[in-house]
Structure formats: structure tokens, C-alpha cells
Design a protein around this nucleic acid. Structure first.
Length: 485
RNA sequence: CGGGGCGUGGCGCAGCCUGGUAGCGCACACGCUUGGGGUGCGUGUGGUCGCCGGUUCAAAUCCGGCCGCCCCGACCA
């Protein structure tokens, strides 16, 4: 019994943070590194990132942005050029003071984000309204010296995508900001199967240097919110700081209007926390490195050859049908062990094939999104690729449906401050609280200090939804508060 | 940076109080066995006991200092 326990991960309901770490380590998504706060992305974890990245990259390019790459090192003086930006990022900068054995004349900072160096270049590339809009994106690593780190959610170094655009008009830049928010939301729901709340950030939660920050927020399995992507309307703040000016069609100099937007490897943490269960990971098929695994079952040597032969003849048609399939032909491991192993790794579909199935020309299919023993079905070998594709589609849809239901179940409206406070009491999250808020930072601070919930998003669609602020009673719009990661 | 905990094979721990041969489970290697939900048995590999210094005939154990990690708070995608 005691040995049995070691094979399982910490139950999710018992200790969410312990469960989260166990799943990531056991599913081999990531490992700790010798450098504090930094993690290693193992092949299975990185493959998810690649799948996610490739799909998002296509969607970003479809909006007209093009990929580029800017340097890792930024002159220290650049950060200081935008007042709020420097204030926001100074505490968490990694600074390089020496190079080639000599102290540098001007220290270099390791980019925490690339606004400054990209805008420095934009200033040199933009002269005329004909140069606009200018839209670039880069996939890169950034470093922020965080005080407290958690795998994927907050690490000293992380990978992300950051888009930076410059436009001739405010309206155009604002439209771009909202367009990218929409890209993120659709991407999250269609590819990651994560339902997202979207809206505006409060002033306190705004990006350092932005006029307005928009966000997509996910709700994790423990009732805490996670910021899954942001899109910033920068106004002309950076244009003024970096002197990004263009001649308009009246031959007058104008500052450009700008945006920036990004998502990070934090999304891997969201995948774990939204879909995972006590059996381990549950991956949406669209990002699963292996979508279908074939587990052969045999007793005797002659069965082994026969079963493996049949299994191999199943594999090729699956691959031809565009399915990322894998045959687990490892010897010396029982089928039961393999079932649990692949469930831990979150593979959406498992195909079991043994002597009985070979004789019948069929296989057993098990799906990871539903308690598997009950959900096993038989499929004929000839129909396997089509049946697998159908099942993968179903799983993708079902994971989103399940996550939506979980989010809805943890979303409540409050008009009584005491009730809100009770809801947020205790460890773990308290779900999403929809309240009326006057947008006065004083009320926001009080909520944060007394309930530990923060403003996650202010919905963009506000018509006919005004009411008395839950704290002060003055009239305000709707806002979502939650305890967040 | 404040509060708490912990450093002993790859991982999880016991041993420390009361100094004297470094031990257990898992993992790993090999063999047999088993195989439709985490097989069982046997053999074996692997440790400067976080670091530095002190006490002692003798230190994982006692004393002093340092370092690192984890959890809880203040900052954050």
C-alpha cells in the first residue's frame, strides 16, 4: 500500500501546488535547473510549446505582423527612457557589468521585454506615414529577476512571443490592440481548450508604460485566475520617449501610435492546471506531442510477434492520416504500467491491441478526457485512422466543454462585500467574482488587502450593467476579481 | 528582505538526542518470472553524510561560522 502511494502523484484536491509540481516532473515536461528560478524544458514539455507556438505563429502572421529578432542585451540607459517603464522593471533586471574580462563602459541589461530596443530601431525605420503600420513579432527568451518562482508560471527566464506595432492613428493602434486580444482568446479556446475571460486591466494592473492593458484570464483548477496573455495600447508614450515620428500626408511631423502584445510559456502551466487530474496530464489533441499511443499486449513469444506486427500495420495508416501516433513496443513493462504512464503524460487517445483483437481485426480505444476504464470502445482496424480523428476532435471539444463548465461553476456575482470576503477566505482560490466597482484604486486596494483578490478584468461590453460599487456604493461598471497566480 | 522548515547514493527518508562498521524504500543494471489497469523473486551498481573550521584516540552525530534549497508574506507574464 505504501509502495502504491509512491506511484501516484499528490492528489489534486489535497494539495494543488504539490500536485502541480508532481505532474510536471512525472510527465517530464520540465525539471529544475542548477540555476535558481530557472527550469529546463524537457522534450515533452518543449514539444507542447512548439505545437502551440507554431499554431499561434500562423495566426499572428495572418494579422500582418512579421517575425524578427532583436538583441538579448539592451543598453541600460534605454530602460530609463520611459518613466513608468523604468519604474516598473528596475527591480527585476539582470545587469551585465563585465564582458571579455573588462568592466563595461555602460552596463547591459538582459531584456525583461524588448519595448526599448525595438522602439529605438523603429525610430530609425519610420519616417513617413507610408512606413506605417510597422508590425513585428519576435519569439525569444526574457529574464525577470523574480523573488518567488514557480515552474512555468513564474520563472527567472521564460520564453515568449512579443509583438510590437506602430500605427499612424490612435484608432488604428487601438483596433490592433483589440484584434490581438481576440487572436489570443480564440487561440486559447480553439487550441488549448482553455476558456478565457477577457477585458481591460485596472490602472494598478496595467503594463509599465501602457495607456491601456487588455488581458485574457483563465481560471485554474483550484479557483485561482491566471493571466494568459496581454495586449497593450501604448499610446504615444514610447514614441515620445524614443522619438518615433513620421510625416503625415499634410507634411506634418506626428508621433506614432503603438501597441505590444505577448503570451509566454506560462501557458504550459495553464494547460496543466486547467485540464490535469489525479492521473496526470490531459492534453488537448491540438497541442499533444503524441495524439495516439498504441499499446501492444501479449503473453507468449509467438503472440508478441503477431501483436507487434498488427500494431505496426496500425501505425502507418494513422501517420498517413496526419495523426501524431506512437507505438509503445517497450519490453518488460506490463500493459497496466504503460496505461498509467501514458495517462500521466496526457496522451489523448490510447489504442490497445492484443491477441484477441488481432483475431477479431479490431482494437480497443480509450480516451484520456473521460475516466478511461468505462470509456473504452472497440474499433475495427480498417477504420482506425478515421475513428481516431473523430475521437481526437471529440476530446478537443470535450476538454473545452469541461473547462467551461468548471469556470462557470466557479464564477459568481456578488453585491455584498462581506459575502465576497467570505468567498475569498482560506487557502487556494475563490473562483471568479463578478462585482460592481467604481474603478477607484482606493476601493481596489481595500479589496486586495482584505480578500487577496485582485482585479483580473473589466469586461469591455458594459451596457446596462452599472450598479453600486461593492466597496463604496458609488456607481460603477462590472469587473471580475479573483485571487491570481 | 522578514517568519518557518530542511540539507545523508538519482528521488524520498532513517540514523544525530546518548560520537566508534553509513542503512531502508523507490529508481537504475542483469537474470528468471509476469503481461487485457502501476507483476513477483533473486543478484548487483551507486554515498567526500551541503561547505569550512574546532573539540576528540575517533565526528553524519558535539561546538562555531558560512552556503544552498523549499514553504509562507511584500513585486510580477
Amino acid at each position: 500500500m505504501a509502495e502504491k502511494q509512491e506511484k501516484k502523484v499528490t492528489p489534486r484536491s489535497q494539495d494543488f501546488a504539490g500536485w502541480y509540481n508532481d505532474v510536471i516532473l512525472r510527465a517530464e515536461l520540465a525539471d529544475y535547473s542548477p540555476v535558481r528560478g530557472c527550469i529546463v524544458f524537457r522534450p515533452d514539455g518543449f514539444a507542447i510549446w512548439e505545437a502551440l507556438r507554431d499554431e499561434l505563429d500562423r495566426r499572428i502572421k495572418r494579422t500582418g505582423a512579421r517575425n524578427a529578432y532583436f538583441p538579448l542585451f539592451i543598453p541600460q540607459s534605454f530602460i530609463a527612457k520611459e518613466a513608468e517603464h523604468v519604474e516598473g522593471f528596475s527591480p527585476e533586471l539582470a545587469v551585465v557589468t563585465h564582458g571579455g574580462g573588462k568592466e563595461l563602459e555602460e552596463p547591459l541589461i538582459v531584456r525583461p521585454t524588448s519595448e526599448t530596443i525595438i522602439n529605438h530601431m523603429f525610430a530609425q525605420w519610420i519616417h513617413s506615414h507610408r512606413d506605417l503600420p510597422l508590425m513585428v513579432n519576435q519569439w525569444c527568451n526574457v529574464v525577470r529577476w523574480e523573488m518567488r518562482t514557480r515552474m512555468f508560471l513564474r520563472t527567472t527566464e521564460f520564453l515568449w512571443q512579443e509583438g510590437h506595432t506602430a500605427h499612424a492613428t490612435q484608432a488604428e493602434a487601438e483596433a490592433e490592440t483589440l484584434l490581438m486580444l481576440d487572436v489570443y482568446r480564440n487561440f486559447g479556446e480553439e487550441i488549448l481548450a482553455i476558456p478565457l475571460l477577457w477585458g481591460r486591466k485596472s490602472a494598478a494592473e496595467r503594463f509599465a508604460g501602457a495607456v491601456e492593458t487588455y488581458t485574457v484570464e483563465g481560471l485554474m483548477g483550484d479557483g485561482r485566475a491566471l493571466q494568459c496573455g496581454t495586449s497593450h495600447f501604448l499610446g504615444q508614450n514610447f514614441a515620445r520617449a524614443f522619438n518615433i515620428r513620421y510625416l503625415d500626408d499634410n507634411n506634418e511631423l506626428q508621433f506614432a501610435w503603438q501597441t505590444s502584445w505577448g503570451v509566454s510559456t506560462r501557458l504550459l502551466g495553464a494547460l496543466v492546471m486547467v485540464h490535469g487530474d489525479d492521473q496526470g496530464l490531459r492534453l488537448p489533441p491540438r497541442v499533444a506531442p503524441i495524439q495516439a499511443v498504441i499499446v501492444p499486449i501479449w503473453r507468449k513469444a509467438e503472440e508478441r510477434d503477431q501483436v507487434l506486427g498488427a500494431a505496426r500495420s496500425c501505425l502507418a495508416p494513422l501517420e498517413r492520416a496526419g495523426i501524431r501516433a506512437y507505438l509503445d513496443a517497450r519490453e518488460g513493462l506490463t500493459p497496466g504500467f504503460k496505461f498509467n504512464d501514458w495517462e500521466m503524460r496526457g496522451v489523448p487517445v490510447r489504442i490497445e491491441i492484443g491477441p484477441r483483437d488481432v483475431a477479431a481485426g479490431s482494437v480497443i480505444m480509450a480516451r484520456r478526457d473521460i475516466a478511461s476504464k468505462e470509456a473504452k470502445v472497440t474499433a475495427s482496424i480498417g477504420d482506425l485512422p478515421a475513428a481516431t480523428n473523430r475521437l481526437l476532435d471529440e476530446i478537443q471539444t470535450n476538454l473545452l466543454t469541461q473547462a467551461r463548465a468548471a469556470m462557470a461553476a466557479q464564477t459568481r456575482s456578488f453585491d455584498d462585500y462581506e459575502a465576497l470576503r467570505r468567498q475569498m477566505e482560506g487557502e487556494g482560490g475563490g473562483g471568479l467574482a463578478e462585482i460592481h466597482w467604481c474603478e477607484d484604486p482606493v476601493c481596489e486596494t481595500r479589496i486586495r488587502e482584505e480578500t487577496r483578490a485582485t482585479c483580473r478584468a473589466i469586461p469591455l461590453n458594459q451596457q446596462g450593467t452599472r450598479g453600486p460599487c461593492i466597496v463604496c456604493g458609488r456607481e460603477g461598471g462590472r469587473a471580475f476579481f479573483a485571487k491570481a497566480y
